[in-house]
Design a protein around this nucleic acid. Structure first.
Ligand SMILES: NC(=O)c1ccc[n+]([C@@H]2O[C@H](COP(=O)([O-])OP(=O)(O)OC[C@H]3O[C@@H](n4cnc5c(N)ncnc54)[C@H](O)[C@@H]3O)[C@@H](O)[C@H]2O)c1
Ligand SMILES: NC(=O)c1ccc[n+]([C@@H]2O[C@H](COP(=O)([O-])OP(=O)(O)OC[C@H]3O[C@@H](n4cnc5c(N)ncnc54)[C@H](O)[C@@H]3O)[C@@H](O)[C@H]2O)c1
Lengths: 207, 207
DNA sequence: ATTTGCCTGTTAATAGAATAACAAGGCAAT
DNA sequence: ATTGCCTTGTTATTCTATTAACAGGCAAAT
């Protein structure tokens, strides 16, 4: 199947569709209509159908979409076959929350290592994830074949860290530090900051 | 100043501009050019100028923008005078990370209460934030005048919780649960899920 | 057998956001 | 004073995303 680069937002929704579909499958459903998916995710049915069109899938006319097929198809699009290995840098509250969150999730994404500089955290295992000293960053990334890094360190170190990560061969960074990172050639970057979200909510609440 | 509803994305950036401007002010700068702001945030100068235009501010021609003035103006737009009070529901790793993050930040946004159902967490203070039993949710929201809630509980309880929050008079919800909430009349909703972000990164890394 | 109703798939229209283009102002150097 | 160079402010264009519109098809009801 020839697939042009999908729109950003469609990719985000595919991830959500899959999660929802998995839930429905677990409940014993085998087929689902676009408006059912839409209701579960609180978006419009048209948008669901449009996204499905973009990935080249087709439902059957009066039965809707085959849940299992669709889950698998989404898998071939957003997963890689071998799965993606992830590292968390900074084992504070936030880093731990992420590891806890990903623990025992059935996705192809797997947090396989954590890094810190605080001796209290190093060489300990938190929910199956081993924490290494930051000095070993490049070594472990190579050894385990880690592709994506989540930055959850204090803001000051985010930028130099991103440089090291790029050099070490990391292909994608998820930055939770409030310090925005400059895009680096060949490294996909995604950022999120709570204060920005909160101030946005506050603004629209005020109006 | 008559101000139409600002675009979503502009509001997000205003929050970031202010943070950056505060940093620069602390370094002793008094004026700043659009391209300097742009570099610090890794966006384009045009976009900075356009946003500034939308809020009706003007810089001086060869000196750029007066940092102090601009910080104040952004304040009048996204802050409310009395500040906004915030509650965190769910004092797990994530809830604690948020409280820690907001602690001692100089913004008008203030986390003033936490709620949980686990006796180990209740009636304790974490970084100046007191944790109440969920039973007292409505009472405390009214008493303290809380306007925004951050949901960091297990996913199952998110939806009923949102109903209670609405009834209690909450105007904005920031949902960090992977369960999408349906919009509720009169309550501004913002959501973020790490797995979606990760899968998005994974997709674009793969391509 | 025909009609009705309800889905899908796709194209067309609209809205929203980012980028490009450029006029105008003023400082600095000459 | 004139020229050249930056920088702002704003309008126009392009790009991206969402929503609307509708043709096509099948199943069930009449
Ligand atoms: N985006 C958001 O919504 C959000 C929310 C909360 C916190 N934050 C940010 O996330 C970051 C982490 O927050 P937290 O609450 O977990 O903080 P924390 O202080 O609990 O954890 C930081 C961890 O990073 C470690 N660390 C320090 N320097 C390091 C280095 N050079 N390399 C590797 N590890 C290092 C520390 O030892 C500590 O374990 C902070 O930058 C904070 O501002 C963001
Ligand atoms: N969006 C993200 O990026 C992200 C990341 C990590 C975790 N999460 C989600 O955030 C939530 C919290 O994660 P965590 O790691 O802090 O989990 P956690 O288990 O550490 O914390 C959950 C807390 O909620 C409390 N709680 C349970 N039921 C409650 C109720 N009815 N009312 C109030 N409090 C209640 C528990 O006592 C506990 O303290 C989970 O839903 C998790 O899936 C989201």
């Amino acid at each position: 199947m020839i697939m042009n680069r999908l729109p950003d937002k469609t990719v985000e929704r595919l991830s959500q569709y899959r999660r929802t579909l998995n839930n429905q499958l677990a409940k014993g459903k085998t087929h689902i209509f676009s408006h059912e998916i839409a209701n579960l995710l609180h978006i419009t049915p048209v948008q669901v159908r449009r996204d499905i069109m973009l990935i080249g899938y087709s439902g059957t006319l009066r039965k809707g979409y085959d849940i299992k097929e669709m889950i698998e198809l989404i898998g071939t699009i957003i997963d890689t076959d071998q799965g993606v290995k992830i590292a968390v840098i900074g084992m504070g509250n936030l880093g731990k929350a992420f590891i806890h969150y990903m623990y025992e999730k059935q996705t192809k994404l797997k947090i396989v290592a954590a890094f810190d500089i605080n001796p209290d955290k190093i060489d300990k295992t938190y929910e199956d994830v081993y924490c290494y000293h930051l000095d070993r960053l490049e070594e472990i990334i190579k050894e385990l074949g880690i592709g994506i890094a989540i930055i959850a360190t204090p803001p000051e170190v985010a930028s130099p860290l991103a440089d090291r990560l790029k050099e070490a061969g990391i292909r994608g960074i998820l930055n939770y530090t409030p310090r925005p990172l400059s895009p680096r050639e060949g490294v996909y970057l995604e950022e999120h900051d709570m204060i920005t979200s909160l101030e946005k909510v506050a603004y629209f609440v005020k109006a």
